[in-house]
Design a protein around this nucleic acid. Structure first.
Lengths: 211, 211
DNA sequence: GTCTATAAGATGATAGAC
DNA sequence: GTCTATCATCTTATAGAC
């Protein structure tokens, strides 16, 4: 079941430099609020207030609050997983693939902070509705990406053979995505700087070698 | 301002093997629900239902929903920070102190999974009320513990001198506490096993040395 | 210590005017 | 595309009976 809700005929999210439609403006506002306060703790009145309209008017654009978050999340996920697929299909060695996957993930936090935050905070709750079944699918898909990369690394001798693959996957996943809690695009370290340092710590640790 | 709400004269939480009071039973139920669904998404009716009473009856035991979460969080934090203080005051070398702090934290996740989850998910929101000002204080205190340990490690030559101390602190903090999302006491790896593997990855990385 | 009953406000959503 | 007006439901919390 596709997530889109586009009576105008199928416009996606804001890509390129085109002027955003009213629908897109409203989704941007909703995404920021959902990210800041959580989906259930954001009221349709909150969204309408920020948009300068009344809550009832929102229902001219969207069926329901759920339709809004559905459109926000599904658009983002398509893009991210397209990039993971590209990395998996590439001919790079295991270490390079792992590094690329880390960098692409931090880039996603930079470009889609609200979407990432919503997924991190509300996916479990939303996943209880059939409509959002694709969230659990994406979770499994992401897990498969990382497990594949880690196992390839161990097999080709670039990663330690004694690693607990599942635990390593969790550590990598958690450390990357939880950064959405403190990373602010345009302030402090850039997402590429953070990815550099993270890759270094992940691969070589924080201790002095041979210590 | 103390957080306790103890008309009975000051009983703490359930320690040792004593039979829990009705008050403690209700707090245990509330803590699990707050952890699972979030503070704002747990209704007093949810808590009362699980306890087998009506929502109004809860107000015989507690002033408000906020008093409940206050008592849950403050009791837990006293214990955890007592352990950090002990480590800081010890004569151990920097590497040992860092390892001990990691282990104590994973042990806290094991013993107080609900409390940790509530703090992770709802501290930002609760912190907006004066009553919960101590949460921000504890956050700063925790930051100071880790920063101190990392800086001591760098100074004494056991940690790499090129580390970004703040970023390293965030990575350590995030990776540890986010484990509360998937760790389940008594299932899978024990908290000591997880701490072992985590310390190894943190200090030495996942790559083969000299790779 | 729990129940009955209820207040006062917030919430997602709808129907129809402009 | 937005507003007026409103509904049915859920929310935290209270007062007093048992």
């Amino acid at each position: 079941m596709p997530a889109a809700n586009t009576p105008d005929g199928g416009s996606k999210a804001t890509k390129g430099g085109e002027t955003p439609t009213r629908r897109e403006q409203l989704l941007t506002i909703a995404a920021r609020l959902f990210a800041d306060k959580g989906f259930r703790n954001t009221t349709v009145r909150d969204i309408a207030d920020e948009a300068g309209i009344l809550s009832g008017s929102l229902y001219h654009h969207f069926d329901s609050k759920e339709s809004m978050v559905d459109e926000i999340l599904s658009t983002f996920q398509e893009e991210l997983f397209g990039q993971y697929d590209e990395i998996l299909a590439s001919g790079d060695d295991a270490r390079t693939k792992l590094e690329r996957a880390v960098r692409v993930s931090f880039e996603a936090i930079d470009r889609y902070p609200s979407e990432v935050a919503i997924f991190q905070n509300d996916a479990d709750y939303l996943g209880t509705f059939e409509r959002f079944g694709y969230l659990a699918d994406r979770n499994m898909q992401s897990r498969q990406v990382w497990i594949t990369l880690i196992e390839e690394g161990v097999r080709t001798g670039v990663l330690r053979a004694d690693l607990d693959v599942t635990l390593t996957y969790r550590f990598i996943r958690d450390t990357i995505w939880v950064a959405v809690r403190w990373y602010r695009p345009g302030r402090g370290l850039s997402h590429t700087d953070i990815a550099d340092q993270y890759v270094r710590i992940l691969l070589d640790g924080i201790a002095v070698s041979g210590g």
